[in-house]
Computed example of a mutant assay.
Amino acid sequence: MSTTSAYLSVRGIDIDVVYKDIKNLHIGVYPPMGRVRVAAPARLDDDQVRLAVIQRLSWIKRERNKLRSAERQTEREMVTGESHYVWGVRYRLKVVERPGRAHVEIDGERLVLYVQAETTAEERRDYLDHWYRAQLRQAIPGLITKWEQTLEVTVPKWTIRRMKTKWGSCNRETRHIWFNAELAKKHPNALEYIVVHEMTHYFERGHGERFTRLMTQHMPDWRSRREQLNGSPLAEEDWRR
């Protein structure tokens, strides 16, 4: 079965489209972030797919809201025994109560959080979040430098922040790039993919044919990296077991 793919943006929602030798159009909304994917008959064009998406927009938004609500319900208790991910590797959390400053470190298969007694779950989450951000601050500069040379552009400013629906974003006018703090939990390949994705927006605003061509030119395996990233859990991953 022959297939072709495309990116569309509909009312601010990015749509992955795969054209196949099928009879009917199918729209899916996938966890963890509400990624929208359309499987469309090869006989349709982008405008026809866009119209089909607009007609189902209310349903798509409801499904995305359900995923985000479910995500908020999985907030961690930050106690020993929970599973947490660092760069795609799963670790068991061990909480050690002791005097002094909070500290996080990896010890074998454990992610150890040193905190004072009586710290709340929210305070522990903040400590771990700061540690995750520190991991990104160490990893991002080298990737940006690498791809600045490859793409022959300059990234004047980048920021880490928590985002509910995107792994990254880019302001083409200021060239400011934002990275989702959750990326520190994902495989390093995912972070590099987002770096290249956002820097490619310097050349092309949307996710159309030119954007796809540029991504393929500079990162031939970007689709597999994207699938790995979008298929990985965002918050649900950390259930206690």
Rank of each mutant, 00 (worst) to 15 (best):
N189C: 05
L57H: 09
K23E: 08
D14F: 05
R225L: 10
A52P: 01
D107W: 06
L143A: 00
W239D: 08
G34L: 11
L229V: 07
W167E: 02
L234F: 10
Y114E: 13
K66L: 12
C170V: 06
A121Y: 04
R62W: 02
R225N: 08
K186C: 09
S5H: 13
M163K: 08
R50C: 09
P156Y: 04
T159H: 10
R68P: 00
F203C: 07
Q138E: 14
H218K: 05
G108C: 08
W239I: 11
A52I: 02
E173S: 12
D47G: 01
Y30A: 06
R64L: 08
H218I: 06
P188I: 01
A181E: 06
A117W: 03
R101C: 03
V96H: 11
V96S: 12
R125K: 11
P141V: 11
E209L: 10
L93M: 12
D126K: 12
V38C: 04
S58V: 08
R226S: 07
S224N: 09
W178I: 01
T3I: 06
W59P: 02
S83R: 09
L214R: 15
T74L: 14
P99H: 07
G81N: 02
E122T: 07
A121Q: 11
E75A: 15
S224H: 10
A39K: 11
I140W: 00
Y91S: 02
V29A: 05
V38A: 03
G81E: 01
L51P: 00
P220T: 12
I27V: 15
K94Y: 02
H187P: 01
V79F: 01
V195M: 05
R161L: 14
D14S: 13
R175H: 11
V17M: 05
Q48G: 08
K166D: 03
Q73N: 11
I13F: 05
E77R: 14
K94W: 03
W222I: 04
R37Q: 13
R43D: 01
D46A: 14
G231Q: 13
T174H: 06
R37V: 14
R225V: 06
A121C: 04
V195P: 00
R241H: 09
E105F: 09
S69Q: 15
Y114C: 13
R162Y: 05
R35L: 06
E182M: 13
H130P: 00
A39D: 10
E97R: 14
V155E: 02
M1S: 14
L234W: 07
Y132C: 03
E77S: 13
R172I: 15
E152Y: 00
G108H: 12
